[in-house]
Amino acid sequence: MQYMLLIYDCDRPEPGDPGFEEALARVNAFAEECRRRGAFVYGHPLQPESTATTVSVRDGKTLITDGPFAETHEHLGGVYVFDCRDLDEALELAALCPMAEQGSIEVRPVAPVAGLDHRPSA
């Protein structure tokens, strides 16, 4: 079963910032542990909300607006997708994630939909 981990409210040090190398090493070690368990599917940090653009199509017209869809105090800083045996394993990986020590991680199961074809491009 696949789970998406949404990483909220976590400051990310930039290259050159104090602590950057250490943070990078910890996140890489976490990803390595997930790969070792055969759970790692995808993961990436996101650029800040100031870079977000929201798109919707109504009556055939495309509306493009600056900013995230919902203005909230919680900042979505990145996502992982893991393949896990059950929720317990996903929760265990979430607790191992270094970002859980500063921010919070929402764990959401990926919904199985019959007939949905989401293979990556060849």
């Binding site: 789970y3 896990c84 059950d86 317990d88």
Partner: peptide, 14 residues
């Protein structure tokens, strides 16, 4: 059912 909550007795470490 949908979140895949385990239907077994938890692993020893849990």
């Amino acid at each position: 059912r949908d979140a895949g909550i385990s239907l077994r007795v938890p692993a020893d470490h849990l």
